[in-house]
Measured scan of single mutants.
Amino acid sequence: MDPFLVLLHSVSSSLSSSELTELKFLCLGRVGKRKLERVQSGLDLFSMLLEQNDLEPGHTELLRELLASLRRHDLLRRVDDFEAGA
Rank of each mutant, 00 (worst) to 15 (best):
S12P: 02
L63N: 03
Q40V: 11
G85I: 09
T60W: 04
L55V: 11
H59M: 06
L75W: 00
E51R: 08
G32T: 10
D44C: 07
C27K: 00
D74P: 00
D80H: 07
L67G: 02
G32E: 12
Q52D: 07
F25H: 15
E37K: 10
C27H: 01
E51M: 10
S12M: 05
E61D: 11
R64A: 04
L36W: 05
S18W: 09
E65I: 11
E65S: 12
H73A: 10
L62P: 09
R64I: 05
D44P: 01
H59E: 09
L49Q: 03
S13Q: 07
G58A: 10
F46S: 02
D81L: 08
S14L: 06
M1A: 06
S10N: 13
K33Y: 11
Q40C: 13
R71A: 10
L5Q: 14
L43H: 10
E65Y: 12
H9Y: 08
G85T: 13
M1P: 11
D80C: 06
R71G: 15
A86E: 14
Q52Y: 06
E51Y: 07
Q52M: 11
H59A: 09
L43I: 13
L67I: 06
L62Q: 05
L20C: 04
P57A: 12
Q40I: 07
R71Y: 08
L63D: 01
L49I: 04
E83P: 03
P57Q: 10
F46A: 02
A68F: 11
S41R: 06
P57R: 10
R38Q: 14
L5D: 14
L43R: 06
Q52G: 10
L43T: 10
L49K: 00
A84T: 13
F46M: 05
R72Q: 01
A86D: 10
L62C: 09
H73W: 10
L43Q: 10
V79A: 01
E51C: 08
K35E: 13
L23P: 02
L70V: 13
Q40Y: 11
T60C: 13
C27G: 02
L15W: 03
L67A: 02
R64W: 04
S18H: 12
V79P: 00
S12A: 09
F82D: 03
L26K: 13
N53C: 11
K35L: 03
V79K: 00
L63F: 05
L76E: 05
S16K: 07
G32K: 08
D81R: 07
